[in-house]
Simulated scan of single mutants.
Amino acid sequence: MNKITDKQLLIDKIVDAIQDTKGEDILIFDLTTIENSVAETFIICSANSNTQVAAIAGNVEKKVRNDLQDRPWHVEGTENALWVLMDYVSVVVHIFQKETREYYEIEELWGDAKITKIDN
């Protein structure tokens, strides 16, 4: 398999895991045309509580590990679960509590990216 196919499989698996745990407002940002971007793809979603943020993060990690034999390079934010960031190098997942997502307006920061909205 090539790198593009691998990345698309990873994106699809992450989105499936988010949907399984009822994550909402899922957006995929293609950052490949953005200069100095920290990753090629961002996946952003919202949750209603820190319990749900933690559940989504746990499900993403489990599904990707079990199905694709991949692990995140780095994870942060699990202590308070207001905003968990999971770094799979080319793909970075942001799982926000709704209020935290609204506060940081991360969509505005990457407004130049090609954005795909995933229906719940």
Rank of each mutant, 00 (worst) to 15 (best):
N2D: 14
D6Q: 15
L9D: 14
L9R: 15
L9N: 15
D12K: 15
K13W: 12
V15E: 14
V15G: 10
D16M: 08
A17E: 03
A17V: 04
I18P: 01
I18R: 05
Q19A: 10
D20H: 07
T21Y: 12
T21D: 09
K22I: 06
D25S: 14
T32A: 11
T33M: 11
I34A: 11
I34S: 11
I34H: 13
I34V: 13
V38K: 11
A39G: 02
A39F: 04
E40N: 13
T41F: 13
F42K: 09
F42R: 08
I44L: 08
I44H: 03
I44P: 00
S46M: 05
N48T: 03
Q52C: 00
V53W: 00
A54K: 08
A55E: 00
G58W: 01
N59E: 03
V60F: 02
N66P: 00
N66R: 11
Q69W: 05
D70G: 02
D70N: 12
D70K: 15
R71T: 05
P72Y: 06
P72H: 07
W73L: 09
H74G: 04
H74A: 03
V75F: 05
E76W: 10
A81K: 03
A81F: 04
L82G: 05
L82W: 10
V93N: 12
V93Q: 13
I95A: 04
F96N: 06
T100H: 08
T100D: 08
Y103L: 13
Y103C: 05
E107Q: 15
E108S: 13
L109G: 07
L109Q: 08
W110C: 04
G111C: 10
A113K: 14
T116I: 12
T116P: 03
D119Y: 15
D119G: 09
